[in-house]
Design a protein around this nucleic acid. Structure first.
Lengths: 343, 343
DNA sequence: CTGTTAGCGCTTTCAT
DNA sequence: ATGAAAGCGCTAACAG
């Protein structure tokens, strides 16, 4: 039934040349010059037979497989995974590579096994992606292939790609200022004097540093800073609700969209209007940001661009060590007023 | 630097046996019985050298690669992709397989190219996943490997995995009935006499059929059926808002969570309370369902289980043709009352 | 029960 | 300018 796959030998035979010649022509080696006629015949033969090189044979011979491993801690848990994978995938495809995806759940043995499974398949490179932008990532096995860290960093592998969180923090404050907000700003999600957060990644520290830097730069200060354990809607709701009892903020700067989501719910119960009485800005560009009424203006995590860049770096022989920062895009929606909020 | 990889020959040499013997022992072929001592020596040698078989060589020889291709139209566009990929990935890993993921954007040439790229790599099977549960999926190239359709179907490949939408539809109505709702129910998202939806997949038809079947079964009827072009929050909001002007529903059955999200927003502006004045149920178990206040009770799309099952089928030599339906789980939250809504 | 031989399909010396 | 031969690492036949 399933006809045997056509091999290079078949192509060569049909073209009336040796496999060697066919190989050289089809792989486009530049140094050797076979006749134009030979080229034509080989290409014609390959096309007419529908020849596709056998990747295993090629990998065995050349030690390169035109495949990349994308190893991450979690692929599904976070909505973020998608963009990272999609970007990497697109860049891989453009370069004629294929992508293996492996998930480790953050468990060391699974990390090791994932690396081995990838190396066994002669992958040409590995992207380690931290979905949760965690601390360092350390699969302690020898890795011969090039490695790029995505959304995380590691002392061992100096090439990495991350969102430009510091600039993002600055941007958010600038957005607020440009909307005419200059006082009674509440920060939702963090209070340096009362830090109750889960472990905050280094990236989050940069986000906060960017905010504080820009606030100082503009002579602005927070009326209040609200800390919470976990950045989920429930906490945003509770904190905002109780804050609103004794504070009349002009704006709430939320450290992520899920907190902002909760804040919307609390504000909705007061009769105050967004953005005319209270302005909101946030981070991440979660899917919910566009569902809200009015839409939530937020500085987005550029996941797809990050994935692309990581793959580009991995595939670029001329890459050099260091961290590539990707700009966080401004998603303008309706939660920031045209003119200063009034109350 | 990077020491040459250790090969089977190295293991055999250290164990004092032939490569053949080592191969048989390590691959665990049952038919041949080498001495227990030989086994021990080979395993010891392999372990001490850290031997890992070269996958390319093995694939070349055996025509099997312990890898599966997951080819989908979109990986990132929908929040659904995650679960499907994650489930398939987990099942693949458990079976010692690796997963290639390829995206086609639904473009025929990319579909063909994806299949070829996979086949070139000797994948042992292919999962075609339709993120949007579209019509049929037809990459018109010869495919020797086994294929499982995931969240979609194809005349060409009879093995498929889908959510049990008909039962899901029944379940939602049952949930409503059990919550004491028996009249003034509004259906949000579909009106058979005024169908303005985008192309609805076959699965959605089943969902609606399940609903109607169960309604009839219980002698229930819809007070109103609201149709809209696209199942996004905006439409849910607009439809609910205007419906509320001349109707006093006791419950709204939403055809997906995003519509329900919009309905919540509209209801929130009226002062009516969920679930005591209006009950809501919905489908999908989108992330937002748990963000809402009260939480949205919804019948979820079992993506992870579907992904697992697709991979399981693909890897099972004894699989038989047909569609495997996966149960849609009930996510009980607060949008359904303990006792009949009153107003 | 164990080892030798051959060859999967390709690329790469090295001769011609 | 082209081809023959070797060999990547592994496993399936077949001999011993």
């Amino acid at each position: 039934m399933a006809k045997k796959r056509v091999t290079l030998a078949d192509v060569a035979r049909l073209a009336g040349l040796s496999p060697t010649a066919a190989s050289m022509i089809l792989t486009g080696r530049p140094d050797t010059r076979l006749s134009a006629e030979a080229h034509a015949k080989v290409h014609a033969a390959a096309a007419s037979l529908g020849y596709r090189p056998n990747a295993a044979a090629r990998a065995l011979r050349t030690d390169r497989s035109r495949s990349i491993a994308f190893i991450s801690d979690y692929v599904a848990t976070t909505r973020y995974a998608n963009g990272l994978i999609r970007g990497a995938l697109a860049a891989a495809e453009e370069a004629g590579h294929v992508m293996l995806v492996l998930e480790t759940g953050g468990a060391p043995e699974r990390e090791i096994e994932a690396v081995r499974a990838a190396l066994d398949r002669q992958v040409d490179g590995i992207i380690f992606a931290a979905m949760r932008a965690r601390e360092v990532f350390v699969p302690d096995v020898p890795i011969a292939a090039p490695v790029v860290m995505l959304n995380g960093s590691s002392a061992r592998f100096p090439i990495s790609v991350a969102p430009d969180e510091f600039a993002g923090g600055q941007t958010v404050v600038r957005l607020l200022a440009e909307a005419g907000v200059s006082e009674r700003i509440v920060l939702l999600g963090h209070n340096p004097d009362d830090e109750r957060g889960l472990f905050r990644s280094e990236f989050i520290s940069r986000r906060i540093a960017g905010i504080n830097h820009e606030m100082a730069e503009r002579g602005l200060r927070f009326e209040k800073q609200l800390s919470c354990w976990n950045w989920e809607p429930d906490h945003g709701y509770d904190l905002t609700k109780s804050m609103l009892r004794d504070t009349s903020p002009t704006a709430i700067l939320c450290l992520n969209d899920r907190l902002a989501f909760g804040a919307y719910q609390a504000i909705g119960q007061t009769g105050l209007s967004i953005p005319n009485n209270i302005a909101l800005v946030s981070f991440d560009n979660d899917e919910v940001a566009s569902y809200l009424r009015p839409g939530l203006t937020t500085v987005g995590l550029p996941h797809e661009a990050m994935g692309r860049e990581a793959m580009r770096l991995l595939l670029d022989p001329a890459r050099s060590p260091g961290e590539t920062l990707i700009e966080m895009p401004i998603m303008r929606r309706g939660s920031l007023p045209e003119q200063a909020p009034t109350r």
